[in-house]
């Protein structure tokens, strides 16, 4: 049996990030090509409870680093643990999911090890070389890339592979991983949290009603708010809207905003520029409301209503 593919598991104070399960599925696709197994790396004592979930999703072994310096998440601390694990466990490759945290900790580890890091892959093909497909432009383009490294370090684009439970009910044998961390890693640990909302978020809402430049003003969003409330959803917007100061940037959908994946995205007065589309395309269904039947959003949507959003939306809300 050759060396294992080590998958870094993301969690927040012991709560598993679903993206980690995608990383395990991705790790298995690499391991199968290498004839190797997948092993999980849990960082922080609070993560101990996640071992069974890792095994159920295909990890053959679970390593837990519960160093007392790891009181909370910290990019430099996690990067140092991963770099140390590379030395202690000699894995064949290291993988994680391409979330904010996943990409950040792998970049820190790669910098520490002076090795390349390939972010947001959708596919890895292992022959004489490692070749992978990764996303550029936030998902608008694919890049075929070749990797030359003594230890491949890769993240999988979020939502690119599906999590799969392969060994339900199996339980884990957790192996402690003792590492000595340099003092400085604690300088970038999370120190505090501010809780803003417990409710629906743009990233998780089942319905998003999005508005673009066509809404015309901050006040214009009232008709979108009403429809979103009726459908149990939230309001999103395009960059033209945040640039005009009509909505906060936290409402922006797209390459430099939030990626949404609702059951239905209702895109109103949005032309459908590529940078907006990449943030919206994971929606199960898209309904465009636009005065212009040739708008990119209309052409790419599953459904469309041609017309002025100020006529169309109130008529829907009032049933």
């Amino acid at each position: 049996m050759s060396a294992a593919v080590l998958v870094v598991i993301e969690h927040d104070r012991g709560a598993l990030a679903d993206a980690s399960l995608e990383a395990l599925a991705f790790g298995r696709s690499i391991a199968e090509q290498l004839g190797a197994s997948v092993e999980a790396l849990l960082i922080g004592a609070e993560a101990a409870g996640l071992a069974d979930a890792c095994v159920a999703h295909g990890a053959g072994a679970v390593h837990l680093c519960s160093n007392s310096d790891l009181s909370d998440y910290g990019p430099e601390a996690y990067g140092a643990v991963i770099a140390a694990a590379a030395g202690a466990l000699s894995p064949a490759a290291i993988a994680a999911c391409g979330t904010d945290r996943g990409n950040e900790v792998l970049a820190h580890a790669a910098a520490e090890l002076d090795l390349p890091f390939v972010a947001n892959c959708t596919d890895v093909r292992i022959g004489d070389d490692w070749e992978m497909t990764r996303v550029q432009w936030g998902g608008s383009l694919n890049e075929e890339t070749r990797l030359t490294s003594s230890l491949p370090i890769v993240s999988v684009a979020h939502h690119a592979v599906e999590a799969e439970e392969v060994a339900p009910g199996a339980s884990a044998d957790v192996q402690p991983l003792d590492v000595t961390l340099p003092d400085w890693v604690t300088r970038s640990l999370v120190q505090d949290r501010v809780v803003l909302s417990e409710g629906l978020t743009l990233a998780t809402a089942p319905v998003v009603v999005g508005g673009g430049r066509g809404v015309g003003s901050a006040e214009g969003f009232a008709v979108l708010e009403e429809l979103a409330a009726k459908l149990g959803g939230v309001v999103g917007c395009s960059r033209a809207v945040t640039n005009n100061g009509w909505r906060p940037h936290s409402d922006q959908v797209g390459q430099t905003g939030t990626r949404i994946a609702p059951q239905l995205y209702i895109a109103c007065g949005i032309s459908g520029a590529i940078q907006h589309w990449v943030g919206a395309k994971a929606a199960k269904k898209i309904l465009a409301v636009n005065t212009d039947p040739a708008a990119n959003m209309v052409v790419k949507a599953d459904y469309a209503v041609i017309g002025d959003l100020f006529d169309v939306l109130p008529a829907i809300t009032n049933g």
Binding site: V298, K300, D302, A304, V305, I306, V312
Partner: peptide, 16 residues
């Protein structure tokens, strides 16, 4: 995807 046009203006509301 073939976009399904549900209608024009407020008249499209029942189809939506």
């Amino acid at each position: 995807s073939e976009t399904v046009i549900l209608g024009h203006g407020a008249d499209a509301a029942p189809a939506v």
